[in-house]
Each structure stands twice: as C-alpha cells, then as structure tokens.
Simulated assay, not measured.
Amino acid sequence: MSGFNSSDASFARASSPPPERAAAEPLGLSVHGLPAAGEAMQAVQRTRSGRWQMIGVLLVCAAPVIASYFTYYVVRPEGRRNFGELIQPQRALPDVQARTLAGASVPLASLKGQWLLVSVAGGQCNAACEEHLYLQRQLRESLGREKDRLDWVWLVNDAAQPPAALAPAMAQGQVLRVDGQALAGWLEPAPGQRIEDHLYLVDPMGHWMMRMPASLDKSTAAKAKRDLDRLLRAASSWDTAGRPDAAAPTR
C-alpha cells in the first residue's frame, strides 16, 4: 500500500509545472463587440451633422414665410395703422370635421392653401349676416387679379338651413357647417362682442391671424382692403393662387 501511494505522489509532482513557470504565463482575456473610440466619436458627429442639416433645410423652406411676416409685423413705415386687429399668437385651424349643406363630411383643415375671409352666423342669416356675406364678396372682387389668392367662407354654427334666396351668393364662396363649440375654441370675438360680429382673416397655412372690427361696413371696407393688399403683397414671394395639395371643398 505504501509503495502504491508513493508512486502516485511522485507522478503528481512530475506532471505539475514548476511554480515559477506557472507564474510566468499570464491569463489571456479577449473583449468583443466594443467599437474603437474613434469610430464611436465619428458616429456621434455624423448624427449631430444630420440634425443640423435637417434644421437648415427647414429654415430655408420657412425663410420666405418668416420674412413676409417680419416685414408686415415689424418693419412698418411710420404712421401705418392696421384696420384689423393682429392676433398674437396666431391660432391654427382646428382638427375637426365640417359638413357641406348637403351633409358631406369635409376636414376643416382642407381650407388651407388659400387666404380665407371668414364669417360666422346661424343658418337663418339675419341682416348682419347678409351684410357680412356682401362685404366678403366685395372685398374679394376688389383685389382684382389677386382675388384668386383669397376665398370667402361662411361657417354656419347651427343646424338651420340657409334661405333659398341666398343660393346665388353662396355659390360664389364656401359654406360649411361647423360645431359651434369647436369654432369658439378657435375664433374669438373682441371683448363685449359676439363671434358673429366680426370677419376673420386666415393665412394660407391655416392660421387665424387678423380680426376685422365689428364696426366694419360699406363705409369702412376700403380700410379692410388696405390690410388685405398689404398682406397679399408681403406674402407674394411664397403664396400663389389655388390649393397645391387638395381641391377646394364641395359647396
């Protein structure tokens, strides 16, 4: 027994490496999947560069619009006075469905792409409503060759049906039925006035940006026309007649 144990011990000593040799052989470690520091930095720089390029493209596209509004709102000759009240901040067309008088559904946002001169009234259309419809038509016609850049719109805020006698006038503009609460969240009258008391001007991007005084009538229509002329002239570098992306709503 003792001889057998002695042989095992000798074999173990013979097969083990010397201590100094084992210490001299370091462990090998490998790291996988980590990009070089230079490559990671280049990826970050490419991402930043792409973002700045995107911002630059957006600014180039928006520059004409910004310039025209800057000209109108800021760079004003001494003594210039607007007849209409500029709205700050401007309010975008709400994302709601309107209806034609025949009942067809129309997104209100489909009115974008044209300047809009908007009136609001119930379907019965009292004397003040008829006066607004007349002024809307006359102001548009007074623009001459620029009139195709502006549409006049009557937004009916109740369920009443307009009188048949108004059919010839309505055929010249847009008449849509819109929920009264949705309109109240977009258009706002001057203090002490009703939403039906004003004409509202909306730019081609769908922003309500001017409110005509409740005192607007035939005797002051020329002042409203001056505002329209100035705005159309300021926007001439980027605005053209007609809706580029969608047809006008069915009347």
Rank of each mutant, 00 (worst) to 15 (best):
H32W: 11
I195M: 12
S7H: 09
R243F: 00
A247C: 05
Y73R: 07
P18S: 11
Q42I: 11
T100A: 14
S16I: 04
K147S: 15
L199H: 08
R76S: 14
G28A: 14
A159P: 00
A248H: 04
Y73A: 05
G79A: 13
A14K: 10
S105D: 13
A214R: 03
S16H: 03
L216N: 09
S15D: 01
P89L: 03
D245T: 08
G103F: 10
G122V: 08
A190F: 10
V31C: 13
A127L: 10
E85G: 07
E78M: 12
S237Q: 10
Q114P: 00
R140V: 09
F11T: 14
A98Q: 05
P189L: 07
T240G: 09
A224P: 03
S105F: 07
Q90Y: 04
L183R: 06
L228T: 04
Q53K: 10
L133Q: 08
P35K: 13
V65H: 10
D95W: 01
D229R: 03
R80V: 08
I55A: 15
A241Y: 02
P64N: 06
D239E: 05
V202C: 06
D8E: 12
V175N: 04
R243L: 00
L108F: 04
D239Y: 03
L232K: 06
G84Y: 04
L133T: 02
Y73H: 06
R48V: 05
K112I: 04
V118M: 14
S16L: 07
A121F: 10
K147F: 03
P168M: 04
P107H: 03
V153L: 11
W154V: 02
A224V: 12
A224Q: 07
G206K: 12
S68P: 01
V156I: 15
Q181S: 08
R211G: 07
Q172I: 01
P107I: 07
Y72Q: 01
Q138H: 13
A22W: 01
G33I: 01
P163A: 15
Y69Q: 08
L216I: 11
F70E: 06
W152V: 05
P17G: 02
A127M: 09
A246G: 07
N82T: 08
